[in-house]
């Protein structure tokens, strides 16, 4: 994890100190530190000269600006109707069993956060999920074991 103060400074030099720079800065923090900590948001508030409440209000609005899910790998399973019809529940059961956490939780070693997400545009290839920026389609329990197994081995 990068030191928050340095990181925010670096990102605001890259994207600017304007309000329009906020989402790219948030994104940059998450890429390095995996989530938006309270300290990070306070630092951003200071840097952009915006109230901390406003900064938090904005962060909490967006589902990919994680303020709670601290895992290095965010597993987002699509819960929209067509993925649901094609067996999303079984996929979640497999993931929960492998990671020993429930949807919405993060593993103790802070490696994985398991999350629901709305439509990710892979409806014709469901059930589908994202792990960070990568997508996985036509999931089956076996496929999930292989995919997640790889992440666990390489974490």
């Amino acid at each position: 994890m990068a030191e928050v103060k340095e990181l925010v400074k670096e990102l605001s030099e890259k994207y600017g100190n304007r309000r329009e720079s906020l989402i790219p800065i948030f994104q940059g923090i998450i890429d390095k530190n995996y989530y938006l900590s309270k300290e990070a948001m306070l630092e951003v508030a200071k840097q952009l000269d915006v109230s901390a409440a406003d900064i938090y209000g904005t962060a909490s609005f967006f589902s990919f600006l994680d303020t709670d899910a601290k895992g290095k790998y965010k597993i987002r399973i699509c819960k929209s109707i067509t993925c649901d019809m094609k067996g999303k529940s079984g996929i979640i059961a497999t993931l929960e069993e492998m990671l020993k956490i429930k949807v919405g939780e993060t593993t103790e070693d802070l490696m994985f956060s398991l999350l629901h997400t709305n439509c990710i545009g892979l409806c014709d290839q469901g059930p589908a999920m994202l792990i960070n920026d990568n997508y996985y389609t036509k999931l089956t329990a076996e496929k999930v074991r292989v995919i997640l197994g790889d992440y666990i081995r390489n974490k």
Binding site: S80, I81, T82, N118, C119, G121, L122, C123, D124
Partner: peptide, 11 residues
């Protein structure tokens, strides 16, 4: 932004 459930043509 293509967020409407069931849409993936823009991608």
């Amino acid at each position: 932004d293509e967020g409407e459930p069931g849409t993936f043509k823009d991608k």
